[in-house]
Deep mutational scan, measured.
Amino acid sequence: TEEVEKIVRELQKRGVSQEEIQRILKRNGIDPRDVEHVVRRLR
């Protein structure tokens, strides 16, 4: 989703690792598959 993408991009800008990003998003109830998808697209 748009929202997830924004969050991921923001965290990446701050130098947060992929694993940490995924952990944060999972904690916020976001589907890990969505996270994977977004992270892969932004690489």
Rank of each mutant, 00 (worst) to 15 (best):
L11M: 12
R9V: 08
V8R: 01
H37L: 13
K6A: 08
L25I: 02
I7Y: 08
P32T: 04
E20W: 11
H37F: 08
R43T: 13
R33H: 08
I30Q: 03
K13A: 07
V35L: 08
E10W: 10
K6Q: 09
I21Q: 01
I24P: 00
I7R: 07
R40Q: 13
I21D: 00
L11A: 04
L25Q: 00
D31T: 03
V38F: 03
K26G: 10
Q12F: 15
R33P: 02
N28Q: 14
E20Q: 07
V16Y: 12
I7E: 04
V35G: 01
E19I: 09
V39Q: 04
I24V: 07
R33L: 08
R23F: 08
I21L: 08
S17G: 08
R23M: 12
L25V: 02
Q12D: 07
V16A: 08
R33Y: 06
G29A: 02
G29K: 03
L25N: 00
R23H: 12
K6E: 06
R43M: 15
L25A: 04
P32V: 04
V16N: 06
Q22K: 14
Q12I: 15
K26N: 09
V4D: 00
N28A: 13
Q12S: 12
Q18F: 15
I30L: 07
E3P: 06
R43I: 14
Q18Y: 15
R33T: 06
L25G: 00
V4E: 01
Q18C: 14
E2G: 07
D34G: 02
R23L: 12
R40D: 15
R41I: 13
K26A: 13
R27I: 10
R23S: 10
Q12G: 05
R14H: 10
R41M: 15
E2R: 09
R33A: 12
E20Y: 06
L42E: 03
R40V: 09
H37D: 15
K6Y: 07
D34M: 14
E36T: 03
L42S: 03
E19R: 12
D34R: 06
R33M: 09
E3R: 09
E5G: 03
V38A: 07
L11W: 04
E19Y: 12
E10Q: 09
P32W: 08
R40Y: 03
R41W: 05
E5M: 12
N28K: 13
K6R: 12
R43Q: 15
L11I: 02
Q22L: 14
S17D: 08
L11N: 00
R33C: 08
D31N: 10
V8G: 01
Q18S: 12
K26D: 09
Q12V: 15
Q12P: 00
E3C: 00
R27H: 11
V8D: 00
V4F: 05
E10T: 09
E10C: 09
E19L: 11
E2A: 11
K26W: 11
R40T: 11
I24K: 03
S17W: 03
R9G: 04
R9I: 08
G29M: 03
L25E: 00
K6D: 06
R27E: 14
R43V: 14
V16L: 12
V39L: 15
K26Q: 13
R9Q: 06
K26E: 14
V8K: 01
T1L: 15
E3F: 12
P32K: 03
R41E: 14
V35Y: 13
V39N: 02
K6H: 08
I21N: 00
R9C: 00
R33G: 05
V38I: 14
I7N: 02
R40E: 15
S17V: 06
V38G: 01
E36M: 06
I21C: 04
I7P: 00
L42V: 06
E3G: 06
I24N: 01
V35H: 02
R33D: 10
I21A: 05
R9D: 04
E5F: 13
K26I: 15
R27W: 07
P32Y: 04
E3M: 11
V39P: 01
L42H: 06
L25S: 00
V38N: 00
E10H: 09
E3Q: 11
P32Q: 04
Q18P: 12
G15N: 06
I21F: 07
G29C: 06
R40L: 07
K13N: 10
E3Y: 13
V39Y: 08
G29S: 03
V38E: 01
R27M: 12
G15T: 01
E3N: 10
T1K: 08
L42Q: 04
R9Y: 05
N28C: 13
K6T: 06
E20S: 08
E19N: 08
E19H: 11
I21T: 01
